[in-house]
Amino acid sequence: MKLYRFIIEFLQIAILLGVAPAFTGWVRMLKCWSQGRTSAGIFQPYRDLLKLFSKDVLLADNASWIFRFTPYLVFGTAVLAGGVIPMLSLDLPIASTADVIVLVALFAIARFFTALAGMDIGTAFGGMGSSREMTIASLAEPAMLMAIFTVSLASKSTSLSQMVHVIYSGQIVLRPSIAFSLFAFVLIALAETGRIPVDNPATHLELTMIHEAMILEYSGRHLALIEWAGMMKLFLFVMLGVAAFAPWGIAESGDLVTISAAFIFMILKLVIVGIVLVMIETGLAKMRIFRLTEFLGSAFLLATLGMLSYFILE
């Protein structure tokens, strides 16, 4: 039985590694269609990764070990986060390692080191990206915590599996506090995964890029790891949002039928979230960086309002 739980765990991580590029491919494909372009297909991200893995690494002369270590660390935190968020089953052996606060902090480690790697080479773009990324994160991260805290207040737990359990048992009905935090979560997820209107993943325009500016100097397998981790991050944010706000379908017990049902549910949700994401992205324009304050500030305010309304109304 114990072994079985570990198999589920590994299955989940394998799905994370395997499906994340496909999800990114799906979003890109939809985007192409919505903008009247021909798409490269859902599997293009795999081909990109393969190409990058087979290429040599070009390393700037003064790159230090931090620059070389960061891709591995970013990848490692993403995989660990994937082992903790319930995607298929709630009964994960390492789920108790980390609750939502730790999850947010895991993403923060990746960001911390990516920002350092951006400054390592000593070009203007890297520093610019780091500075912007940390600024955005300093507003987005607390907002993210507050949004999830509201849900965990309602379920009296910060452990994700436990939160899903409580939602299943029907103790959480739609409350104003949850609505606030869901809205805040969507805004922050856009910011944290570097989507429009905060950052544009498809551009390398100097003045507007944020995440791309930090990783501008990466190449070869380093870049492949970072890109892959980025895709996993997008995937994980979807899974995190699903687990916190719409967990229906995730298996409570671990038999094969419910697990495969959970997998189908997961794919369905991914398809839907992809459509919504593309609708948001094509409907909005990228914001100026100093307009982001209002965007993120309102997300932070909404999340705090959600928690306030929990304390005052309930």
Binding site: L116, S130, E141
Partner: peptide
């Protein structure tokens, strides 16, 4: 309580920015 939690979260995130800057 909610405001306090929000400010602690804000502090943590700003501290990360501060020390990326210091080290970087």
């Amino acid at each position: 309580i909610p405001l306090g939690a929000a400010l602690v979260a804000l502090t943590g995130a700003l501290a990360a920015a501060c020390f990326v800057r210091a080290f970087g």
